[in-house]
């Protein structure tokens, strides 16, 4: 890769990223997270259009009582006593549900022709992995993480 050219996201992104579909179940999301050691998974519709992400944080919220994970929920929780069976019950109640209502849709994406610095700023401030999305149709075409970037730097040597 010649040094004199500016680098765009398309040059270093990995593809295609592991993803879920909007109609996948919570159970499938958990399996994917466990199998791939991922912290957030992109979600697409059946036309491969990027919809949002499912995060470990959101799935943890499903295992908590709703009154603790909701907006303005209970913060002072020192008095609560629970066991694993309580948590299992909550997991059983949601595991066959579609992930649709748990998808975070306010995810900032980059385009293949976005400057690399855009992706780096997002990695620095917000996410572990940035989805790369087609500018026209919104299809998920790749992802960028710090690992992707470091590998690209290795290749340079």
């Amino acid at each position: 890769m010649p040094n004199s050219e500016f680098t765009f996201c398309s040059a270093i992104m990995h593809s295609p990223p592991t993803h879920l579909y909007v109609d996948s179940t919570v159970h499938e999301a958990i399996e994917l997270l466990v199998d791939h050691h991922m912290y957030n998974v992109p979600v697409v519709d059946r036309d491969n259009k990027f919809v949002g992400e499912i995060s470990v944080k959101r799935l943890t919220g499903l295992l908590l009582p709703a009154s603790l994970s909701m907006e303005q929920g209970l913060k002072n929780t020192g008095f609560i006593r629970e066991n694993l069976a309580d948590i299992k019950n909550r997991l059983d109640a949601v595991k066959n549900r579609s992930i649709e209502s748990y998808i975070a849709t306010d995810i900032t994406v980059v385009y293949p022709d976005s400057p690399l610095i855009d992706a780096m700023m997002l990695l620095f401030h917000k996410y572990i992995r940035i989805p790369v999305v087609n500018r026209d149709g919104g299809q998920l075409v790749g992802g960028i993480s710090l690992i992707t970037l470091l590998r690209a730097l290795e290749d340079l040597e």
């Binding site: 009154s67 603790l68 909701m70 929920g73 209970l74």
Partner: peptide
């Protein structure tokens, strides 16, 4: 929020 927890 405490009420919702108890009711749950």
């Amino acid at each position: 929020p405490v009420t919702l927890l108890i009711v749950e």
